[in-house]
Amino acid sequence: MDVLMVRLFDTIDEENMPWLLAADRALREAFGSWLIDLVPSYTTLMLHYDCLCLTHAEALQRIERALEGLEPAGAGLGQRHEIPVWYDPSVGPELVRVAERAGLTIDEIVRRHCDRDYRVFALGFAPGYGFMGLVEEALATPRLNTPRRRVPAGSVAIAERQTAIYPLQSPGGWNILGRTAVPLFEHARRGEPLLLPGDRVRFAAISRDEFERQGGDTTPLESAS
């Protein structure tokens, strides 16, 4: 009734990002205070507008005009974050599962997970939860059959070829590899998430000592049953 789905692509691709970011900017400008929410995802932007001020037809017209002659956002889009992670089976129990599936050592899994920049495709699932990708094919691992009831904040995880960090303690079915002490979303950040769509993230392996120095919580996480 007051929501329109703007569909720009059919497949997940890093090349979509500059277009999605540009569309995000253009739509925000076109709707101004009549925009209630705009939710970008991998291929779409969901637009929630004030239906008491704009008719359906007017909303469509604004979208059309906003997307006319759209230029992709510049190459330097997004911030780059380096996220220190303590990779260890005590806080990342699925290191073992991912290593076994890939036929690689745990050290090699860690090296490869840290070996490239990941793009933040979308935020969702929980506040500040950035869906990032893509991890290399060899590391791709399906979600757990039974999600954990509690995944601690800061847990770094993968599912298929995506990777993410749990900003808050929550239930979750992703494969946990390690933990970071960096706050992703909490009152200390005044409700602003660290990661935004279009940002790039590079993980860096650190020792337990370093993790503790950064204020990390070393409480072990049980492996999934």
């Binding site: 929410d37 929980a126 506040p127």
Partner: peptide, 10 residues
């Protein structure tokens, strides 16, 4: 809570 859905906030 409106205007924050893009941050993953419900």
């Amino acid at each position: 809570r409106f205007g924050v859905r893009h941050l993953g906030v419900t």
